[in-house]
Amino acid sequence: MNKVPMTVEGEKRLRDELTQLKSVERPKVISDIAEAREHGDLKENAEYHAAREQQGFIEGRIKEIEGKLSNAQVIDVAKMPKNGKVIFGVTVTLLNLDTDETTRYRIVGEDEAEIKAGKISVTSPIARALIGKEEGDVVLVRTPGGDVEYEISEVEHI
């Protein structure tokens, strides 16, 4: 299987969620199912069916997280050489040459991407155009709305 890049923070967040699901959510739903069974006829027991459905979601999420963690390649940017190049995990400050707007993005794994928090996936068009470039380089990014030119103002290894 292909390894999926992930930041240290992304791995920690997934492990924390997995622990929460296994130690809190799973036992609670098992208890809810047992309690609903005590109420009698299971065919017309909405509490039972809701608890079983919740159990299915929890078990599915546990399997999904375990799969992601087993394929994760955790990359600690703090241990990478700081040479001004754009690599996975860095935070990049970009200047849009058409609008003079400045934006900051952190390049993260697909599961960690959250555009409102300034985190973009390493597989996004912007990140793919930036990887390997250096501070001061001008990058052309092809977007659905047309081509956009950015200048890389700063590369931070946070």
Rank of each mutant, 00 (worst) to 15 (best):
N71Q: 14
D32I: 10
I33T: 05
R104E: 15
E134G: 11
A78T: 10
P5S: 06
E114T: 03
G40I: 03
K82G: 09
H49Q: 15
P5H: 01
A113Q: 02
I115V: 12
Q54T: 15
I131N: 02
Q20R: 13
F57G: 09
E112W: 00
V108N: 00
A127M: 02
Q54H: 13
E17Y: 03
I58C: 11
Y48K: 05
N96D: 15
N71L: 14
E154Y: 02
I131M: 12
E44R: 08
E17K: 13
Y150I: 03
L14F: 02
F57Q: 12
E151G: 03
E59Y: 05
N83E: 11
K12V: 05
Q55W: 06
A129T: 07
D111T: 01
H39P: 03
V8W: 02
E156S: 11
V122H: 01
D32M: 11
I120A: 01
I107G: 03
G146H: 10
I115F: 09
V108C: 01
S124W: 01
R13L: 09
N83S: 10
H39V: 03
V122S: 01
I158A: 14
I62C: 09
E156K: 11
A127K: 00
D32K: 10
D98K: 08
P27R: 08
K28I: 14
G146C: 05
V86P: 05
S23L: 14
D137W: 01
K43Y: 11
G118S: 07
E35A: 11
S124I: 05
D100R: 02
I33P: 08
T103K: 12
